[in-house]
Design a protein around this nucleic acid. Sequence first.
DNA 1: TGTTATGATTTTTA
DNA 2: TAAAAATCATAACA
Length: 399
Amino acid sequence: MLQQQPLTGNGPSSGRGLGLSGHPGMHALNSVQHASQHRSDDPALEGTENGHENRRDIGDILQQIMTITDQSLDEAQAKKHALNCHRMKPALFSVLCEIKEKTGLSMRNAQEDESQDPQLVRLDNMLLAEGVAGPEKGGGAAAAVSAATSSGGMSPDSSLEHSDYKTKLTQIRGIYHTELEKYEQACTEFTTHVMNLLREQSRTRPVTPREIERMVGIIHRKFSTIQTQLKQSTCEAVMILRSRFLDARRKRRNFSKQATEGLNEYFYSHLSNPYPSEEAKEELAKSCGITVSQVSNWFGNKRIRYKKNIGKFQEEANLYAMKTALVVRQGNDSPHTPNSTGSGSFSLSGSADLFLGVPPVNGDQAPYPMGVQANGNWNGRNSPPAGASPHSDNSDNSD
DNA sequence: TGTTATGATTTTTA
DNA sequence: TAAAAATCATAACA
């Protein structure tokens, strides 16, 4: 993780690298010598008569540095103070700067990846979209609900599931934010600690602000990895919750009695051509409290099932035919609208199809399902016109 | 618990 | 591409 050794002044490895063969420290001795030669005008070096004395001084300093960690804290502090006041300290400091310069080259080569992790961005976006991250306004639940309603079939009792979903999402959100806060606090504390340590060390070794910045970056990246894991887990939890919610939505719920009545009334009153137009479907959907696609599904199912087993539906057809006939008669007798069955607000086309569904008095089965021709098509209908509205009151009335 | 009814989905057809 | 047909999954019921 760290390229540089002396992060902690009290650590066992502190300073030990200096002087080991193969280590830049090997150059240190020469460099100190070199530095001392170049700095002969330095008053601190005045009085050095020859290189032997220099070497003894340098060896002494290095020895002290290497053994500093073997001593007690007080001793170490005292020795640190002594080192700071040592006359050779500026020279050694410049050597350390030189070493740093050399090792810094490799550090510079190691390009720091400042670009944001795409995975983290993805997770952040997901959490934001699900309403876990960002301002609390039930976004996720609202999103799920809107998804549910857009794909059709949001039954009234699904509001119960909705609130359950919302509660669980709030729980996840709570846990997420608590954990995130903990991580952020820990990150801040650790960063502050390390920065203080580096500042302290900067008195005895060269620590540039950029280096501190870099260290802070490293720490943040490490904590960011942990945060990514947290975000990932949260996303998984939300996905599981969401899939459960959506699965619950997929569960088949029978339409309400009113809705089925409304659909049946339309179906049997248009038995010769039970293909509601888009407008009629919308009206039916509105009056029955279901979606247009559900209306389409219902009519698709109804047509095929009616055609397959007309006998089974005769009683039902009879019932609705009589019901609608009654409504129509009432409509003729009174100035009020005939759509007062209470089961829907869509317009009934009249009584044209009403008696198609009424079984023969003697109970004999019709040779083909009523409203359905021998070729399997509906009366007056060879093939459903694509796109265009198949429904027309005129054609119905002509039956 | 088995059967039927029914809403939804998928595949086929014209 | 809408509708037909087949199929699935589950609610409702005996």
